[in-house]
Design a binder for these strands. Structure first.
Lengths: 247, 247
DNA sequence: GTCTAGCGTGTATGGTATACGCAGTATCGC
DNA sequence: GCGATACTGCGTATACCATACACGCTAGAC
């Protein structure tokens, strides 16, 4: 009665919320969504995201490939739930931090949660509205942190967009540098600076060349974490000024 | 002599810079990297990124699948060059804008360039350091815009991280809403608000619930562009305050 | 004129997601 | 108790995919 024809959100996501009533007939189910997802996470942790195939996950569970499709409609659903499980819920916030330190903590925790399973970086591109329990829990915590400010809700969401975008930027680059286990990837970063010198020769790309000459790409350039903190603080400065302007 | 054993960067990228000396022997080449890439872009524009297969691109050019491998070592290289070609170079900046309006313009142009080919969103995850001509041209323009400020080069780079992360956030969500042509995706957004009401029932996720009750997810919520502008302005406010503090 | 590097192509390999049908099982309505 | 039935896990089959490799040919180098 409630929904017209089909479900708007996949059954596997409803199941992740525990909203699915038990089916009553037929044989007992031999697997659990949770077991499937954590097996897939284990595979990704051990052998990378590319190693996660339906048959590999099935084997890992002592089941067949096709058994998984009794729990998931597509592989995409599995990936969505893997991201949700790997990132996990946000750690509880210390009390009385104030919104600014709260958001700092939120962003730092999110960065850490993602980098704890570097393959999650490749799943951050949203395929639809955020709908899984942990993803929404992170969003919820962000909004709670801003609750006592005078920011309207849409500004809170826009702020979340800004901060999470920055986190994404940072983890993407970090993952590209450190996660990449392909041969030659380290060499690529080592030879990056000379490469840039080459392509900025003859007056091309003067802005980039100036940064190079200032040593911004050298070995003694700041750690990527410094870039993360810098951007985060500037963003929060801007938000703070705006909040103040609201009285 | 210059490089020890192999090239750190793929030959196709060197070719994109026009740095490749012509090979002299053998039959004339029937194709061009440029022709291959633009054929692939055409396929992606018409039928989506999933339709871009080596055989499809080969067919599109009247060639065989394997001919492409004389120009590209892997499909990944093709995707990298597709992104570079689709985004294109940054539009020339109006003179005398000042850094703040310059960065606003930069971010807005970048957003527009990405959304002009929505499939590029799925290629924004960096696979290594940015090395293609147009990507570096965007970075260069960003750095040029900040050239007259007292910001040290590493802060300029960190600022670029912040702004481009925000652009990514925004285009990702925009693409997830509008680009998604799968059946049921529109319904999914339509039913998103009721879905959130359901999972925030019983006191769960109170921050999110409050935002819901404030109408932040309703049909009359601000356009996503408003969120983009809000975040961008806050970020620039923070950068501006920091620049001022440098004297 | 011969040599050979580089070209385009056809075929083969090992992988992928997933549609479909089958045989068995456990609960429901009676 | 006893079908009927809905659901289970699984084996097979399909249609892709990227790409390794070997072949015959072409055209510049010597």
């Amino acid at each position: 009665m409630d929904s017209e024809s089909g479900e708007a959100f996949p059954a596997s996501i409803e199941a992740a919320w525990g909203l699915r009533e038990r089916p009553h007939k037929g044989p007992k189910r031999g697997l659990t969504l949770e077991r499937i997802v954590s097996a897939a996470v284990k595979v990704a942790d051990e052998d990378g995201l590319d190693a996660v195939s339906m048959s590999r996950v099935g084997n890992e569970l002592g089941s067949s490939t096709m058994a998984l499709y009794r729990y998931l409609a597509t592989k995409d659903e599995l990936l969505t739930l893997m991201l949700d499980a790997a990132v996990g819920p946000p750690p509880p916030l210390p009390e009385g931090l104030g919104w600014r330190r709260g958001l700092e903590s939120w962003a730092t925790s999110m960065r850490a949660a993602i980098l704890a399973h570097p393959w999650t970086v490749h799943l951050l591109m949203p395929k639809g509205p955020p709908a899984t329990p942990n993803q929404l829990a992170w969003l919820d915590q962000f909004l709670q942190i801003l609750q006592d400010t005078r920011l309207p809700a849409s500004a809170k969401l826009a702020t979340q967009l800004l901060i999470s975008g920055h986190v994404w930027s940072h983890v993407s680059i970090t993952a590209a540098i450190t996660l990449d286990t392909e041969p030659g990837s380290l060499r690529r970063w080592r030879e990056y600076e000379p490469f840039l010198r080459r392509v900025t020769g003859g007056g091309r790309l003067p802005g980039l060349r100036a940064a190079l000459d200032e040593g911004a790409f050298g070995d003694d350039a700041g750690a990527p974490d410094d870039h993360f903190v810098f951007g985060l603080e500037r963003a929060l400065d801007g938000v703070e000024a705006h909040i103040r302007s609201l009285g």
